[in-house]
Amino acid sequence: MSTAVHAPETATETPLNSLGFAKPPSQTRVVVAMSGGVDSSVVAAKLAREGYDVIGVTLQLYDHGAALAKKGACCAGQDIHDARRVAERMGFPHYVLDYENKFRESVIDEFADAYLSGATPVPCIRCNERVKFRDLLETARELDADCMATGHYIQRKDGAARAELHMAADPNRDQSYFLFSTTQEQLDFLRFPLGHLESKAETRALAAEFGLSVADKPDSQDICFVPNGDYAAVIEKLRPGAADPGEIVDLAGNVLGQHRGVIHYTIGQRRGLGIGGLGDPLYVLRLEPETRRVIVGPKSELATKFVPVGEVNWLGDEAFEGEIHCDVRIRSTRPPRPAILRPLGGRKAEIELLDPEEGVSPGQACVFYASGDSRVLGGGWITVQRRKAA
């Protein structure tokens, strides 16, 4: 009579759920940052459908009265209502937090002051850095959440050494430029469930599948607190007298005309200078708020090869030292370009662009990527331009 031989029993490991935790979704609490748009609504609905313990949180970020109102913007009246409707439909709790004072102090005031100093700020990055991924993330921890999820189009991947930040699968929706300042500690806690989708159409299809009222809601455009893209109007409201007129001069200091306020101009601008008929086209090369002068010159003077950056956030596995060959992006609308990154100590560095770029402006972000790869290595803020292209 034969006897069957059984393999010794081994402990069965609990498989990871879709958010990377070794426990059932029902035992995984996730706070979803809900702006009221289709992206974050789909994230919340998808996770709720999968059985996660979802808590929706919407931040009221700015006065949605006449002063700064913008139709179709996020984090204001209608959007709060839309987020609440999604939560009611999918059956999870939803809270609205008043962050108006924090948003004004951390984002809007700096935006206005940066423009007054001649820089070109990117307030969406500061909002992620100082409000959503700092204050809201801390609130998520206080709610005993295992993680916080957002509707950003970017990917979080488990690397050999740590969690890594990668560009979205859809290059047309990629938001990595706006999330470079995400720290490693924050990245460990964050999740981005939409980053792997190939198109926005997939997101809207999911919204329709879940029966969400925001399925066809238009995407928000420009900066949420700037009506119709009129930056100058907002700055004049916040800083009366900011639009004092001054002189438009060439590189030799010759006065070519008058302008209506430095805040109306950006580096690289050609149209709207009001100095036509002077020969070759002229471009804004530099802004001097202290003298209220706009310096213009030929397009060739815009080319920049060396870009100084500060407040560097480093997400690479290797130490931030020596020469680092990578790709960099200096505008959200431009693809990454090959460059050499040279740390200068502390959180400062200089970028050498292998091919000079035009229109590099203080106040913009410079984001670092692994050469030829989707991984985000970090980034910094462009400071005063020092050296031109050779």
Rank of each mutant, 00 (worst) to 15 (best):
D174L: 04
V54Q: 00
A233E: 10
T203V: 14
L278S: 05
G268D: 09
V234P: 01
G91N: 13
V309Y: 05
R342N: 08
T3N: 08
I330P: 00
A169R: 08
P335K: 15
A339W: 06
D79Q: 15
D216F: 11
H196Y: 11
G20S: 08
G380W: 04
M90H: 02
N101A: 15
F225Q: 07
P227W: 08
Q78I: 05
T3R: 06
H264F: 07
Y153F: 14
K388D: 09
E50F: 02
R375H: 03
L19S: 01
K217A: 12
V122E: 04
V309W: 01
V38S: 05
A201L: 13
E236T: 14
P356M: 13
S300G: 01
G346P: 03
V309I: 15
P281M: 12
L282C: 04
E202S: 12
C124K: 10
V43M: 10
Y153A: 10
D98N: 14
D373I: 12
I351E: 00
R286T: 03
V38P: 00
S371C: 09
T3C: 08
T304P: 00
M148P: 03
R342T: 13
V54M: 06
G316F: 01
P338T: 11
S40F: 08
H6M: 13
D113Y: 15
V328K: 02
L197S: 01
C75A: 13
E352S: 13
L59R: 02
T12I: 14
L206Q: 07
G363T: 07
V234Q: 00
G77H: 10
R239W: 03
L61I: 06
M1G: 12
G274T: 08
V57E: 00
M34A: 07
T139K: 05
D146M: 04
I340D: 04
A161P: 00
L377G: 07
V42T: 10
E50I: 01
P343T: 13
L190V: 02
T28E: 05
T28I: 11
C224T: 04
V214T: 12
D113C: 15
R156L: 05
P308M: 06
L251R: 14
A48C: 09
M148I: 06
I55F: 05
G378H: 02
G378I: 04
G65A: 11
N313R: 08
R173Q: 13
G268Q: 11
L197Y: 12
V328A: 05
R342L: 09
T139V: 12
S176W: 06
R270P: 00
A365C: 07
E352Q: 14
I324C: 06
G372I: 07
W314Y: 09
A161L: 11
K237R: 14
V42S: 02
